[in-house]
């Protein structure tokens, strides 16, 4: 499977990446290569093999429902670009 330029433009838009035509062409070649590898893997006969959702054959450990974290707002907000009244400030979001 080979990606078109507009496929790459769409993926870039979804990932909020600004790319110029040269970068898009380079990404298109690289991503197409990855898709070729996937196509190769999909050609393997996996009949009778249970699908995996994780590379490690382990199951999730659970954490007791107990508060372990304390308020560290000051430390976290010291490295934030802009804060006010305890809020993180970001460019206005319009709905």
């Amino acid at each position: 499977m080979s990606l078109t330029t507009s496929d790459v433009q769409k993926i870039a838009r979804l990932a909020r990446l600004a790319m110029n035509p040269t970068e898009i062409e380079a990404a298109r070649t690289q991503l197409s290569g990855i898709f070729e590898l996937i196509a190769e893997m999909q050609a393997v006969d996996t009949n009778g093999i249970a699908p995996m959702s994780h590379a490690q054959d382990l199951s999730q450990q659970l954490r007791p429902d107990v508060v372990t974290e304390s308020n560290q707002r000051e430390a976290f907000q010291a490295i934030a670009p802009q804060v006010e009244n305890g809020l993180y400030l970001v460019p206005q979001v319009l709905e």
């Binding site: 107990v66 508060v67 372990t68 974290e69 560290q72 976290f76 809020l87 993180y88």
Partner: peptide, 28 residues
């Protein structure tokens, strides 16, 4: 629950902004 789904930060309602936003909640 007392705590968040993926971290041990409190879920109490009505606290001061971001005082219950731990490293996981703010995606450090």
């Amino acid at each position: 629950t007392n705590t968040k789904i993926f971290s041990g930060a409190s879920t109490a309602f009505g606290s001061e902004p971001n005082t219950q936003a731990d490293a996981v909640s703010i995606a450090l």
